[in-house]
């Protein structure tokens, strides 16, 4: 996983609440058995005027000129500014894969859906919750000035605006630690292998019916 400590980037505003995972990456692209290559189909329904399907050459497709990511002033964006309950819907991890593959490292919104929150951090995307009023103000600032960039500091948990205003945000301590260090969850958990085995043994004794193959595991 890519680590993230500080990030400075161009901000793109997606003025929509409850952006669900179907909207982030439509289901026809979930058929891939890979983890990469979803970027060209991020927000597919909003971005293109036709229906997309996997394996297509997206450069031949008609773009929706009104969609924010298609506008020239937002090319090269890496920070998405959006509205409440971002990432609701399914548990598909393809959503953060698509955001990451497109080039987003940070998403700012008043709130995020639960499963998406975990999935995003696991894939090196920082989610920054800011209150509704602040987000509204950022929307106005982004729209008012072309080339609007924000400075995000995960260590300090702050976002700094071009005018020098410093906004702080909350982040789960564990997620922060992993993201700062680019740590893989599985490796970390296996450091506790002993504790897991011990638990498992007690659990098996107390609830033997939860283990179907007591024989195989007894060794």
């Amino acid at each position: 996983m890519q680590s993230l400590t500080q990030h400075q980037g161009l901000v793109a505003p997606l003025d929509r609440a409850n952006v669900d995972t179907d909207l982030i990456i439509p289901k026809q692209f979930l058929k891939s058995i890979k983890r990469t290559g979803f970027g060209p189909n991020l927000f597919d329904v909003l971005r293109y005027l036709d229906e997309g399907y996997p394996g297509q050459d997206v450069s031949q497709r008609p773009l929706n000129p009104d969609f924010v990511l298609n506008q020239s002033r937002y090319q090269g964006t890496s920070i998405l500014l959006t509205r409440r309950n971002f990432g609701c819907g399914s548990s598909r991890e393809h959503a953060p894969w698509a955001l990451e593959d497109f080039g987003f490292r940070v998403v700012i919104a008043p709130s995020f859906a639960d499963i998406f929150y975990n999935n995003a951090f696991k894939n090196g995307i920082l989610l920054v919750p800011l209150d509704e009023d602040t987000v509204e103000r950022l929307f106005q600032e982004v729209e008012a000035s072309e080339g609007y960039r924000l400075d995000v500091d995960l260590e300090a948990q702050t976002v700094t605006t071009p005018s020098g205003e410093v906004l702080s945000f909350d982040v789960d301590g564990f997620r922060k630690h992993c993201l700062l260090n680019g740590l893989d969850d599985i490796g970390l958990t296996l450091q506790d292998e002993e504790a897991i085995r011990e638990f498992e043994q007690k659990h098996r004794q107390a609830h033997p019916w939860l283990f179907r193959d007591n024989q195989r595991e007894a060794s």
Partner: peptide
């Protein structure tokens, strides 16, 4: 199901049943 609790409030919980289907598992096996 609590195996271990970390200081930061995250916990390791033990999983008894894991159901798999074709859409969300290939990348995990990979």
């Amino acid at each position: 199901h609590l195996v271990k609790e970390r200081d930061d409030g995250t916990a390791l919980i033990y999983i008894d049943r894991h159901l798999l289907h074709e859409v969300t598992s290939p990348q995990a096996f990979e």
